[in-house]
């Protein structure tokens, strides 16, 4: 039993060390955009499960703003923005990531930009694009954008003390499990 105790303590220690040593900004607070092959679908990954906070798409040329539906797909539940006309767009959360200068060097992006390429040469016509039946489509967005009048990558102001949308929840989950584990372990030893 003593060996088991040390083994478990080692596991917990190793895990806690690797968790807190990781770069939160790289793992949590990011935007990744991809145009799916031979389609007009933009996959919008924001570093956490989808749906989460509302995501807005801005047409860089016309400034048209729309809010994406909560239609998610893929193993990590990225937002799927279907039937996006060729052009250049910015995608960002309506509530930007919060950050901690000590962890994130003061830089968190408000949005990411992507150019949707015309797929006509690949035999895929934009006019023939159809939304997935589960996708309710985009809606007009008329609120101010978080990045209006600001430079991308300069949104970091220490406020809530967290740079990644993953961190507060992850901390809670790991703390909960760690606490339950330790209390149980102590109770087992205490009863012996």
């Amino acid at each position: 039993m003593r060996r088991l105790f040390f083994f478990l303590a080692w596991m917990v220690g190793t895990f806690a060390n690797t968790y807190w040593a990781r770069a939160d900004c790289d793992d949590g607070a990011y935007y990744r955009l991809y145009q799916k092959e031979n389609s007009y679908t933009v996959e919008v990954c924001v570093g956490t499960d989808c749906p989460f906070r509302p995501v807005v798409r801005q047409n860089v040329e016309t400034d048209e703003l729309v809010q994406l539906s909560s239609f998610c797909d893929g193993p990590d539940g990225c937002y799927q923005d279907e039937c996006v006309a060729p052009g250049t767009y910015r995608y960002g959360l309506t509530q930007p990531f919060t950050c901690d200068e000590a962890v994130c060097d003061g830089e968190i992006d408000y949005y990411a930009e992507i150019t949707v390429a015309d797929q006509t040469a690949n035999g895929v016509e934009f006019d023939e694009c159809e939304l997935n039946p589960d996708n309710s489509g985009v809606v007009h967005y008329n609120q101010p954008l978080p990045w209006e009048g600001k430079e991308n990558g300069e949104s970091c102001q220490v406020d809530n003390g967290a740079c990644s949308v993953v961190t507060p929840g992850a901390m809670s989950v790991l703390s909960l499990n760690g606490l339950v584990f330790l209390i149980s372990l102590l109770m087992i030893y205490w009863r012996r």
Partner: peptide, 20 residues
């Protein structure tokens, strides 16, 4: 108690690995 201990360790581990 042992059930909770096993569950907390297992869930903490799988959640943590999921983060990576």
């Amino acid at each position: 108690i042992r059930g909770l201990m096993a569950s907390a360790l297992a869930n903490g581990l799988s959640y943590g690995v999921g983060l990576f």
